[in-house]
């Protein structure tokens, strides 16, 4: 019986101690933010949506290679010897057409590896975080500056050029073989 009343007494007292804390905090400023209306400041270097400044991209594949989840897709076409694609803002010469630079933001794990390895700082994380979309395909961001048909043309051209080169090489080889044979026959 005594234990029972002691328990009741202690419970009441400890609740009152807690309530005193709560009461005191009634007069302190609130710490909650009404999110869609108010937004908190993000610090410098925050890791949210990825962005690629494609003019600076030299197509080195470093970001695609280090990505732990393989969410960066790059296709490049080598520039012809007489073509000058200029330089990136950091001074690195651009020698490739980046015909495709897609990032699947649904796969991205925001680990920041791609931005740390980029030699020209062209891929970086912005402070944009409200990126929900209605369609899954809209989560794939395309950054290449080439129109699809032109990109396709570049790819076809490169393939043709390569095929021509290979054919020329094969022909040259055959010629050399024939010459050799002729020599042996002599």
């Amino acid at each position: 019986m005594r234990t029972y009343f002691r328990n009741v007494y202690r419970s009441l007292i400890t609740i009152l101690i807690g309530m005193r804390q709560t009461w005191r905090h009634l007069f302190t400023p609130s710490v909650t933010l009404q999110y869609p209306h108010e937004k908190w400041d993000l610090p410098v270097g925050t890791r949210q949506q990825l962005f690629v400044n494609i003019d600076d991209c030299i197509g080195c594949y470093k970001c695609a290679r280090i990505c732990p989840v393989d969410c960066i897709y790059i296709d490049t076409v080598k520039a012809k010897p007489d073509e000058d694609l200029g330089k990136a803002s950091t001074g690195n010469p651009i020698r490739q057409h980046v015909v495709r630079f897609d990032i699947d933001m649904f796969k991205c794990c925001y680990c920041n590896f791609c931005t740390t390895v980029c030699p020209t700082d062209c891929i970086y994380m912005t402070d944009k975080y409200e990126t929900s979309v209605y369609d899954r395909s809209n989560g794939i961001y395309h950054f290449s500056k080439y129109a699809p048909d032109y990109a396709a043309k570049l790819i076809v051209d490169e393939k043709e050029a390569e095929a021509a080169k290979a054919a020329a090489r094969a022909a040259a080889k055959e010629k050399a073989m024939a010459a050799k044979k002729a020599k042996v026959a002599e």
Binding site: L42, P43, V44, G45, T46, R47, C109, Y110, C111, N112, F113, T116, M125
Partner: peptide
């Protein structure tokens, strides 16, 4: 932590042989 590493939960901050960023 967000100020330090850029992320709130999944930091990827401590790397082999060092850390990703110096203290701001």
């Amino acid at each position: 932590f967000e100020w330090l590493s850029g992320a709130r939960m999944l930091y990827n901050y401590i790397w082999v042989g060092g850390v990703a960023r110096d203290l701001p």
